[in-house]
Nucleic acid binder design. Structure first.
Lengths: 187, 187
DNA sequence: CTTTCGCGTCAACGGCCGTTGACCTACATT
DNA sequence: AATGTAGGTCAACGGCCGTTGACGCGAAAG
């Protein structure tokens, strides 16, 4: 065997499946992304998807793994936290279709919704919590921030509400940063 | 015939279909709401749905007809516009599952997304436009308001993000009203 | 050289879907 | 009483779905 050390030959296929899966899940949500279509995109037989991921559910679970890569905010001036956060989320959202897949699928699929909840509570929570004044308000404040970030993504990337889908990053940051700032820090 | 004047006998069936359809579309989005399930809920045969609405697409179009019933805001003090608006949207969202159906379906169905765009541009626009300072900014400001309202709905009714789903109406209003206020009026 | 085994194809399964058309039934009209 | 029609049932169609198991192939292992 030339296996474990330097990539088995099937790793390329696995990656192709995952990439095609994310694309399909992002474009049409959970139910419209069919294993047959994903396999076709990846240039292989649908049975391969089953062999490597077991079921559609588990394929989605693998494709929906996601790291927001939130920066450490302890160093940045508190007045700019909103800007940094909004800009980071814009870039993260546009550099990787996984988040759109998660959002589209989360609207109709309970497992996807659960994953979304996990991501926002496990990854956003720890980074933002230290900034909030009253610890008791942390969950609510973070949920409010999430609601505005998710609303932006929904309007801009999923529903494609014309005016907001055409704003530049700078404009979005200028409008949303104060909102985030207030949800996190005010009072 | 005892027809046109006082309701044909089939009107009850039509209404039952529409009601069941809204429920299913709201619970699972467009693709998971099957005509067979809707017909079963309404206590009739699937063929009836086809007879009265022609196709699933046209059934959805009928079920997704919606009036936000936005109040005339010309009478209310400008400082309270945000509060009035947020409270109205909360009530509207919770009194009628059509909006949730539209949101869930809009995530994966282009026709539903288009309908959502129509509703927000045709119904929100005219009511809020007179309040904005610079007419050129009206579309952007309205889209920003929409993004926060949609984000709230997404987090609260679809993804059920725990902390925000449990807030009282008063709390939601207290948090969101200033945001809406700023998106609409500031600068 | 033979055997094993990872990688991949192929055909089929049972099931659910939207949609159709033939048929039944009860009542309003004539 | 005869008839037309609105309201509703029923069985079936073709199609796509997720999933399965039998099979083929080429390279590595023995």
């Amino acid at each position: 065997m030339t296996d474990t050390a330097r990539g088995r030959r099937s790793d390329a296929t696995r990656a192709a499946i995952l990439s095609a899966a994310r694309e399909r899940f992002a474009a049409g949500g959970y139910e419209r992304a069919t294993i047959r279509a994903i396999a076709a995109d990846a240039g292989i037989d649908p049975a391969m998807v089953m062999r490597y991921y077991g079921s559609k559910e588990r394929l989605f679970a693998a494709a929906a793994e996601f790291d927001l890569r939130l920066p450490d905010l302890s160093g940045v001036p508190v007045e700019t936290v909103g800007q940094v956060l909004v800009r980071h989320m814009l870039e993260r959202w546009e550099s990787d279709e996984t988040l759109t897949a998660l959002l589209r699928a989360g609207a109709t699929n309970e497992a996807a919704a659960e994953r979304m909840r996990e991501i926002f509570s496990a990854q956003v929570g720890p980074v933002l919590a230290p900034l909030c004044p009253d610890p008791a308000q942390v969950p609510v404040r973070i949920a409010l921030v999430s609601s505005q970030v998710l609303g932006l993504a929904l309007a801009r990337y999923v529903l494609r509400l014309a005016p907001i889908a055409q704003l530049s990053h700078d404009e979005v940051v200028a409008w949303l940063a104060p909102t985030i700032q207030r949800y996190l820090l005010d009072r």
